[in-house]
């Protein structure tokens, strides 16, 4: 393997370089996906454009409507971010189970999204937050919903030379909480066999579901939002029955494969179990946060 490594000092320069080299170029952020793919012969880029030093693309900012996360933000930063320790804790929970310490210190959330692995852990929590991505490119800037951005395993709607510059989502309504669960064969350094994120909003009394958003990873070609499961919860009493039904519907909505990590059957079973658990955890959190 051999490639030229470029270190642009501005976003504009990065986009220009990417435009210049076209499909033979790759951005590299933390490199924890790119380097492995090069090593395993899955990709052979002639040019690597290192974006890890670009200014302004790392860190978390509070905005008028919610938050903007820079694509170069590491899992370690997410894990420790004070504003995510409350209702948005699914972000912390997902970040905390990515790889091991070394990976979390260097790998970026932008890389996780653009790599578009069906098992990407940080994608489901963002999906439940209806996150959108800001993208800069040779044709100018655009904004796209994360749901529409990931189109297949390893596939996104990113055009040649385009770069993700921010991940944005709105603040949660009152009486809301999030949760994230992941299953694999070991407790760290594990690609999800299934992962699930939930975002639940209850009514003022804390007993009835107002809305729920669910996202399931590693149970289909892309992380998916099981809409029937989500819809089934609206107006229902929050509790085991409705959560279990939602789990069953989510399992029905998923289309997992059988591979060396797990059978499709086991994955579907885990979707049901983890959706129920994530919703239960959300409800407990909302109850715990109430005065």
């Amino acid at each position: 393997m051999s490639f030229d490594l470029h270190r642009p000092s501005s976003l504009a320069e990065a986009v220009a370089l990417a435009g210049l080299f076209g499909p033979g170029a790759r951005f590299i952020a933390g490199g924890t996906d790119v380097v492995i793919q090069i090593n395993r012969g899955k990709i052979a880029p002639a040019h690597l454009i290192d974006i890890s030093l670009l200014p302004g693309l790392a860190g978390i900012a509070a905005t008028a409507e919610g938050y903007a996360i820079g694509p170069l933000t590491t899992y370690r930063t997410i894990e420790r971010h004070a504003a995510f320790q409350g209702p948005l804790s699914a972000l912390v929970e997902a970040a905390a189970v990515v790889g091991g310490h070394q990976v979390r210190n260097i790998a970026t959330v932008g890389g996780n999204i653009v790599n578009a692995s069906p098992a990407a852990d940080f994608v489901p929590p963002l999906l439940t937050l209806d996150a959108v991505l800001d993208i800069a490119g040779p044709q100018g800037d655009r904004t796209v919903a994360l749901r529409d951005f990931i189109t297949g395993p390893g596939k996104t709607s990113l055009g040649a030379g385009e770069l993700v510059t921010a991940i944005r989502f709105a603040r949660l309504a009152a009486n809301s909480a999030t949760a994230f669960f992941k299953e694999g064969r070991r407790k760290a350094m594990e690609i999800s066999v299934v992962c699930v994120a939930a975002s639940l909003t209850l009514d003022a009394s804390g007993t009835r579901c107002v809305s729920a958003r669910l996202a399931v990873g590693a149970a289909g070609p892309t992380a998916l939002r099981p809409e029937r499961a989500e819809a089934s919860l609206a107006g229902q009493a929050a509790g085991l029955t409705s959560f279990r039904d939602a789990g069953r519907l989510a399992a029905e909505a998923s289309s997992p494969i059988s591979d060396v990590r797990a059978s499709a059957d086991h994955r579907r079973h885990l979707v049901a179990v983890l959706v129920e658990r994530a919703l239960t955890r959300c409800a407990e959190r909302i109850a715990g946060a109430r005065p």
Binding site: G100, R185, R186, K187, A188, I191, V260, R261
Partner: peptide
């Protein structure tokens, strides 16, 4: 061999 890499060959970690 379907798992000829250390991602899918699962030795226990310190947490296990």
């Amino acid at each position: 061999v379907m798992n000829a890499n250390l991602t899918d060959y699962k030795m226990p970690t310190a947490l296990d």
